[in-house]
Design a protein around this nucleic acid. Structure first.
Lengths: 189, 189
DNA sequence: AACGCTTTTTGCCATATGGCAAATGATCCC
DNA sequence: GGGATCATTTGCCATATGGCAAAAAGCGTT
């Protein structure tokens, strides 16, 4: 829980009373590897904060291939905010890549926090703006570089993620096939 | 000017007095094709709103190739907001693709509006969140599809842009070479 | 119409990546 | 330990895209 509070306090300040409220509204959730946190086609019902583990956000493209859009690890929020806020169906699903421990807020709890704590929405807004910028910065190199560079860039930026992610997921994230990625790794050695 | 006010009012409401203030702070700027609106390595000094024309946001990758990240046309804001707000150097530059007419706000004017109009920051925040989401949605397909599909998707989504953009810019946006794009177009015919 | 300039297309060949299936390696469970 | 299962690597060949330079097309100016 403290991890989450620390995370929030980076973006704005809260009184002790407000911190207590937020704490009371959170529950813990454990997910086993491969379990889903949210499904495509459903309206997201909760916000998650990763305490332990790695998750990924994916979807199926029009060829029926599963594409990994993002990986998230400890101390990141996982939710498709636009769907969550507007009560619309998500186009992506979120899955545990490793066993995970999450802090979660139901939509109801989240809304109550939002109504009770003046300034909460501004904090959340800041968090999501930052997250959006990071997503863009992660994905932009994927268009602009060749596959080997993409792989190296990923390894450089997220070395701690690499050994927790199956090769097939990483390949789909990098926009190449698993066998190509395997060959790229071979060439680098 | 009315175009800009209409644009703003989509994201929040303003009193007539506030509208007048915003109007007074704006000036017009004409750019000829190929002229720069802002340069990489400089701190952005102004916010632009495109009244007429097409602009592009670019940078040079580590191979020295010029990469087009985005195109913007009428009724879009052009500024690297994070650099603008934090007074840091931009990594991208903004160039007129066609002759352009812009509405611009100096940093000074923008700050004054921000101080004077309660709620302005929230409106701006909304505009930029939306813009970020759109940027992501534009760039994601560029990783996940083959070059022909990327081209077709672009043509479908931005048919009005296509005929105002030189092929070389579009190719760099799509992440392929100009000759490849030319061949793709040939195959489609 | 003729010229110079820029943009786009094309040819030729090199390289990168994909598709598929089999082989190998890793892991888990009994 | 042995076998089932899943993850990764590899071989073989097909296809897509790149690199480079020349040709062709488009465009404005005179």
């Amino acid at each position: 829980m403290n991890d989450f509070i620390d995370f929030i306090l980076q973006f704005g300040s809260l009184t002790q009373q407000q911190i207590d409220l937020v704490s009371r509204k959170a529950t813990e959730l454990t997910l086993r590897k491969d379990e889903y946190f949210s499904e495509a086609g459903e309206v997201p019902r909760r916000v998650g904060f990763i305490l332990e583990g790695v998750m990924r956000v994916c979807y199926y493209n029009n060829k029926g291939e599963e594409i990994t859009r993002y990986f998230f690890d400890e101390h990141h929020l996982v939710v498709e905010m636009r769907s969550f806020e507007n009560n619309i169906e998500a186009s992506e699903y979120v899955q545990a890549v490793t066993d995970c421990k999450l802090l979660i807020f139901s939509k109801q709890a989240w809304d109550e926090i939002s109504r009770t704590i003046i300034g909460w929405d501004v904090i959340v807004q800041k968090i999501f703006s930052k997250a959006l910028i990071e997503k863009l910065e992660r994905r932009s190199p994927l268009v602009e570089q060749d596959a080997t560079t993409r792989y190296l860039t990923f390894m450089e930026k997220f070395p701690h993620l690499a050994n927790r992610i199956p090769l097939s997921y990483l390949a789909s994230y990098l926009g190449i096939t698993q066998s190509s990625l395997s060959r790229i790794r071979k060439n680098i050695r």
